[in-house]
Design a protein around this nucleic acid. Structure first.
Lengths: 259, 259
DNA sequence: GAGGCATTTTGAACTATTTTGGTAGATGTT
DNA sequence: AACATCTACCAAAATAGTTCAAAATGCCTC
């Protein structure tokens, strides 16, 4: 394992546990105490954590922005999404047609899907997801058309809506900005309009949401949770949220993010 | 595999994974550790990533916003194309609608156009060009839709053709794989079909060709040189080629590049 | 175009450096 | 005092740097 990755995982554990012993870290990561000690010393020097006798504790400013190693921060933030994405990709069967909504979590699914060795057909309204999937020669990748929201990679507008509206797909991977026990919502009318089409166009709607989205509400509702066939999230979801969703009969699957 | 392609793929992997070991890259791309090391060192020197022991980490601030400009810079890797692209961008007037064909030379034009401070509307069948242009909030960027040729960023097929067919644009920047004094040609039927639509859809067709394309012939003709309103090329074009084109009354403009 | 020469690129072998995991004694904690 | 943790050091492993021959590419002449 790469030193940088190892350190990122140490911080990840620390964020979840608040404090952890070197011995536990050594066992959890499968590396020697000596290496853990060196890594923790390095991270203390860089200001990511504080040392105690026999362990480390997370510093308060760990959640704010830190400059020196942006990659570490990114790794932590995207760990949940990457895990959800990987689980999502596993659901694709050979020959199926798959819709990929635009978004960071669905992008993680696309990355994982691009690594599969099975053929399938994909359509997306995100140019980044498109170029990612098209790297794999087994994946027939189509793009919806439409107009790009400036500064993003998302295609919206009438062309995008029409492209999706005339499709019938096996699976749709859909993301959402916010979710309550009953309602999915996002930030703009155009986005909501398109997501509504995604929900309608697929036999099986799989919602990809990391645990930070529960339970919030955004400007525009685009569907009900009952329209979701499977909800993929990470294990940091609260017990309350789990219970509320199960009450409504929503199939829920959690992916573990602690190593 | 082409060095530029290889480096682009390394960056692609890095964007997805945040950090990778050289060993993994070597296995994933099927090339030796030595070559990976050289590529990664080169990319570090150019500022696309940073090195760690045994691997590389992404320097991109946000892992989700991939950097089309960087990708384009890698794809172009030619002073002639960059110069032609810069000259092309200068031709855009405020408020015009502009079509960008897929290709490395037109990508250079898109890159330069994204740096302009005037508003215009753009449509393209290349997802890399699209995401590059969309970085500029003054540019309203649309994408044709269609299916991606595996390993490229080009959208083709009926959707792409239909999107272009119903347009009327002020300018079309079109590239070509080969050019003779009379005929423009490219490598596949699908490509040719779409380029034909580009020629028909714009009031002013501007052909962007670096001097290496004279005079060659590719598999599929898609138009005549007489359909071209302005031909932009570099100063390495031969005198013979210049004469032959001028004989046919084609307006020709050369951009200076170092010999 | 075809063939031959120069240049660049690639992959492998080898050496130098860094990193890792273990050990022993010193230091700190309960 | 008993135990755990820390520091310092060492050998083994992994990685970086260097060099070189083979392969690929570009270039020129015919």
């Amino acid at each position: 394992m790469l030193p940088a990755k190892r350190r990122a995982r140490i911080l990840e554990v620390l964020r979840a546990e608040q404090m952890v012993s070197l011995k536990d870290l050594s066992e959890a990561l499968g590396i020697s105490i000596s290496t853990v000690r060196r890594d923790v010393d390095y991270l203390e020097e860089a200001g990511y954590l504080s040392r105690t006798h026999g362990g480390a504790i997370s510093t308060a400013r760990a959640s704010t922005t830190f400059e020196p190693e942006a990659a570490i921060a990114l790794a932590i933030e995207s760990a949940a999404k990457a895990a959800i994405g990987a689980a999502a990709a596993q659901l694709i069967q050979p020959g199926q047609s798959v819709l990929f909504d635009s978004g960071t979590t669905t992008a993680a699914a696309a990355r994982a899907a691009a690594g599969l060795t099975i053929p399938f057909t994909a359509m997306t309204n995100d140019v980044m997801i498109a170029s990612c999937l098209s790297q794999n020669a087994l994946v027939q990748t189509s793009v919806t058309g439409g107009t790009i929201r400036s500064g993003t990679t998302t295609l919206l507008g009438a062309d995008a809506v029409n492209s999706v509206a005339r499709l019938r797909a096996d699976i749709a991977f859909v993301g959402t900005h916010a979710i309550t026990p009953d309602v999915l919502s996002d930030t703009s009318l155009e986005l909501a309009d398109l997501k509504r089409r995604f929900l309608a166009a697929a036999d099986r709607v799989i919602l990809l949401v990391d645990s930070s989205k529960f339970f919030n509400r955004a400007f525009c509702a685009f569907g009900e949770t009952s329209a979701v066939d499977l909800l993929l999230t990470d294990s940091r979801i609260s017990a309350d949220a789990t219970a509320a969703l199960k009450d409504r009969g929503i199939e829920l699957r959690m992916v573990d993010i602690a190593p």
